[in-house]
Structures are given as structure tokens and as C-alpha cells.
């Protein structure tokens, strides 16, 4: 059923603005998302939130608790929240978050806010789903050395230092801006990510976050060839990802891997075989 629906939905997408919100666990992503969503609601915009939380690799279960911070979604038809479990995906979102955002786009929401799981330094898939990525940090997020690390810091279009009323916010702000001056990161295109101090629990700085996200969206629009290039690059990676998912599944089945796995473990543990020889000997159907 899902594939036909997505196929029907595809020609209807492209209206919604998609903002990704990412950052370490406990940085206040859900609270910030709720504050931004409420601000958009006051402006009469329809908002959907996709909130991803991690699936336990041990039980396969998940506690999806982001709704606790989003009371505004109840009793308001223009404010939709869907919690998603990551279900084994390691990129910070679920394998189907992209598809879910397309359905919500086609359903007529003006904004889609996608909140990732609490991330470390390498869960970067949100870049593929969002037009604008907001990285939420807290004053304790680290000194200059952490800031200079690659990965998560490179994907931010807008930095937020949340819980700015705590000690160390000024220092982190300085560290980020200095680092941006001395390293190029991966932003040759001319966008300099702004840094917004916020206290999301009391709504401080939320207007600025939204304004900066809107400024980034406008910046994306203003250079048509560049926008087309960005979109083509993203679509290309998306096709690769969709295809690799299906190919993996098909090849796995065709080569009857599940049927062979137990025997292979036994032989390797008995010392009859090395893992490398077993892998090299698999016939792909």
C-alpha cells in the first residue's frame, strides 16, 4: 500500500518548508521545536512535527517521549505531531522519515519540523531531508576543540545555543564564531551560519531562530542555478539510498544469507574458516 500512496503523493510535494532540528541529547530540541511551532501557529501557519527517538537495539522497542514537550499539538488541527522510532537507522532519523515528510507536505502543511534523535558527531542524515538544518547546542557542549571537530558542526545552517542563561554560553558563542573564521568547513557557497542564543523554556530568542531559518530559506531561493544544483545532488543521493535499501534486501534473499549464517558462525568459531574467506565466497544469486 505504502509505495502506491507515495507515488501518488510525489507530484504534490514542494510546498512545505522543511526545517531539521538536531543536536545532542538533552539540549532542548523538543522544547525548541514546540516553541517555534507555536510561534508559527500564532502566524496562522500549519505545522507538522516529525520527532524521532531511538529504538533499543536489544529489544527493538522504543519510548517515544518528545510529545511530553509538545502540549500545543492537542486540540489544534493545524499542529500535527508524529513520533517515529529510528528502527535501526544510524543516521539520526528513521528510514521512512523522508517519506513521512512527503506525505505531510502533500497534506498541505506549510512547515515540517523534523527533530532527530539526540546525536553525537556523525549522524548527519538530516541534511538530506531538510532545507535548513538548525543545530541545537548548550553552553556545556564543549570547548574550542569540540567545536573544531568535523561532522555535526559542518551541517548547521543555523546554530542555536539553548539554555543560554547558564554559564558558558558566551564562551561557546565565541568559540563557534572564531572557528568559522579560521576554518572553511564545507561551506564554500557563501552562507555564514548565524548563532542564536535561546532559552526555549521561556521563549527567549525563538523569534530570532525562525527569522534566521527564513533568511536561510530565502538565501537558498535567490540563486536559481545553485538551488537546482543542491536539489539535484540531494535527489541523486536519495535515489542511491532508496536503491541500496532494495538491492540489499534482494541480494540478501537471493544469496540465502539467513540460511547460511548459523553454519558460517559455527565453522568460523571452530577455526575451519576465516570471516573474510566466507564473505568472499558468497554467490550473489
Amino acid at each position: 500500500m505504502g509505495r502506491e500512496l507515495l507515488d501518488l503523493v510525489f507530484p504534490r510535494i514542494g510546498h512545505a518548508r522543511r526545517i531539521g532540528i538536531t543536536g545532542p541529547p538533552g539540549s532542548g530540541k523538543s522544547t525548541l521545536v514546540h516553541a517555534v511551532a507555536m510561534l508559527l501557529r500564532r502566524r496562522g501557519q500549519r505545522v507538522a512535527v516529525l520527532a524521532v527517538d531511538p529504538t533499543s537495539p536489544f529489544s527493538g522497542g522504543a519510548i517515544l517521549g518528545d510529545r511530553v514537550r509538545m502540549p500545543g499539538a492537542a486540540g489544534d488541527e493545524g499542529f500535527f505531531v508524529r513520533s517515529m522510532a529510528s528502527r535501526g537507522s544510524l543516521g539520526g532519523v528513521a528510514a521512512t522519515t523522508h517519506e513521512a515528510s512527503e506525505v505531510l507536505d502533500a497534506a498541505g502543511f506549510d512547515w515540517i519540523l523534523i527533530e532527530t534523535v539526540g546525536v553525537g558527531q556523525s549522524e548527519l542524515e538530516i541534511v538530506e531531508l531538510a532545507d535548513t538544518v538548525v543545530l541545537v547546542l548548550v553552553p556545556e557542549s564543549g570547548d574550542a576543540v569540540q567545536v573544531m571537530k568535523a561532522g555535526i558542526m559542518e551541517i548547521a545552517d543555523v546554530f542555536v545555543i539553548n539554555k543560554y542563561d547558564r554559564e558558558g554560553g558566551d564562551r561557546l558563542m565565541r568559540d563557534i564564531s572564531v572557528t568559522m573564521q579560521i576554518t572553511q568547513w564545507s561551506r564554500p557557497e557563501g552562507w555564514v551560519p548565524p548563532i542564536c542564543p535561546t532559552v526555549a523554556t521561556s521563549d527567549e530568542g525563538i523569534e530570532q531562530v525562525l527569522a534566521e531559518a527564513e533568511r536561510h530559506l530565502a538565501w537558498l531561493q535567490e540563486d536559481r542555478p545553485r538551488l537546482e544544483r543542491f536539489r539535484a545532488e540531494k535527489l541523486r543521493r536519495r535515489l542511491q539510498m532508496l536503491l541500496s535499501r532494495i538491492l540489499l534486501e534482494r541480494a540478501w534473499k537471493a544469496a540465502q544469507i539467513d540460511e547460511q549464517l548459523d553454519g558460517a558462525v559455527e565453522r568460523i568459531m571452530a577455526g575451519d574458516l576465516s570471516p573474510y574467506r566466507w564473505v568472499a565466497g558468497i554467490e550473489l544469486g
Binding site: 529504538t55 533499543s56 529489544s59 527493538g60 522497542g61 522504543a62 519510548i63 517515544l64 517521549g65 510529545r67 511530553v68 513520533s83 522510532a85
Partner: peptide, 14 residues
């Protein structure tokens, strides 16, 4: 927690 440990996806609303 018991539902999660059983492999369910649990939405908790507070």
C-alpha cells in the same frame, strides 16, 4: 518500560 522491553513502540505523553 515493560512495553518497550517487549519490543513495542511506546508513545509517552506525560
Amino acid at each position: 518500560s515493560a512495553f518497550r522491553d517487549a519490543g513495542f513502540e511506546v508513545i509517552y505523553t506525560g
